[in-house]
Amino acid sequence: MEKKLAVVVGAGKGMGVNIAKVFGMHDFKVAMLARNLDKLEPLTDELKTQGIEAYTYAADAASTESLTAAFQKIRQEHGSVDVLIYNAAILTAGFPTKLQSSDLMEHYQVDVASALHSANLVLPEQIAKGSGAILFTGGGFALYPMAEYTCVSVDKAALRALTFALSQEVKEKGVYVGIVTIMGSIAPGTHYDPADIAEKYWELYEKQEDIEYVFK
C-alpha cells in the first residue's frame, strides 16, 4: 500500500524536522521544504537513519512562484499531498513606529499569504478525493500581541483567522484544517520542546475534532 505524503513548508532543526519525524514515524513519507538545502539535508539524513522515507526540496516562502514550482515537482515525483503543514514565518522584532508598511507586507507574505497559497496548491486534489488535512503553526502573539513583535503579532492573528475561515469552507468537503498555537519560546529541553509540540500536530490530524490546539 502506498504511503501517504506529508509536506512540511518551512522545515528546519526546530519544529519542522520534528513535525516531519512524527508523521514519518506514523508511516508517512515526508517532503521538507526550505530555502537552504545545505542545512536541511543533514536533518533528512537523520530521519532516514530512523527508517523514515524523507525528501528535501528548495523553496522560498517569500515567493509564490518558488512554492508553486516545488509543489509541482513533489506532485510529479510522489503524487498528491495528503497533509500539508505550513511552518514558515519571519520572527524578527520590530515596534510599530519603527516599521514601514513594506516591512509589514514582507512579513505578511511569508507568514500568511504564502500559507494560503500553499493550501490552495493542495486543496483541489484533497477536495476531489474527499480527504486531506492542512495544519498551520500558530503563536501566542495571536492571542496576546506584543509591541516589540508587531509583525509577528499581526500575522499570527491573521493566520489564526485564516485557519478558522478555511476550516469553515472545506470541512464539509472532507478536508480538515487546524492550527497549533504555541504560547512560548520553542527550545529543546524546555516545556516548549519541539519534539513534544510536534506530537500535537499528529493529535490534531488523527482526531480531526478541534480546529486549534493551544500549547501552553
Rank of each mutant, 00 (worst) to 15 (best):
D82Y: 09
V9A: 12
K73Q: 13
E2N: 15
Y201G: 06
V175P: 08
G189E: 00
H78C: 05
N87H: 04
A59M: 03
K173L: 10
I179G: 01
G132Y: 03
K13S: 15
Y144M: 13
V175I: 01
L135R: 09
Q100D: 08
K29P: 04
V8S: 03
A54D: 02
K173S: 08
L116R: 03
Y144S: 15
D193R: 04
Q109N: 03
K73H: 12
G130A: 10
K21I: 05
V81G: 06
K13L: 11
T137G: 02
T150N: 12
W202F: 14
T56V: 13
L91Q: 12
I74Y: 06
E212A: 09
P145E: 01
T44I: 15
S185F: 08
G51Y: 08
F71M: 13
G189N: 01
Q100G: 06
G51H: 08
E2G: 07
A119M: 06
L67M: 11
L162P: 00
E53W: 00
Q76T: 09
A128H: 13
T68Q: 11
A70T: 04
D38N: 15
M32Y: 08
G184A: 06
A6R: 01
K39R: 14
A88W: 04
V154K: 02
Y192R: 09
Q168A: 10
L43K: 06
K216S: 11
L166E: 05
V112K: 01
V154Q: 11
Y213M: 02
A31Q: 03
I127W: 00
H191E: 15
Y86H: 11
E53Q: 07
F136V: 07
M32W: 10
N18S: 14
T56L: 05
A161W: 04
L135S: 10
I186L: 05
P194H: 03
E169V: 05
E209S: 09
F23R: 01
K129N: 13
A93W: 09
Y108E: 06
A11D: 08
Y55V: 02
T49G: 00
A89I: 10
Y205N: 11
A165N: 14
P42E: 00
L166T: 07
K216R: 12
Q100L: 15
A128D: 13
F136L: 02
M105G: 00
G24T: 06
M1G: 14
G130V: 06
Q168E: 12
E169Y: 04
E172T: 12
N120M: 15
H191T: 12
E77Q: 13
M183G: 00
L67N: 08
F164W: 05
Y55M: 04
T181L: 01
Y192P: 00
A195R: 14
L143P: 01
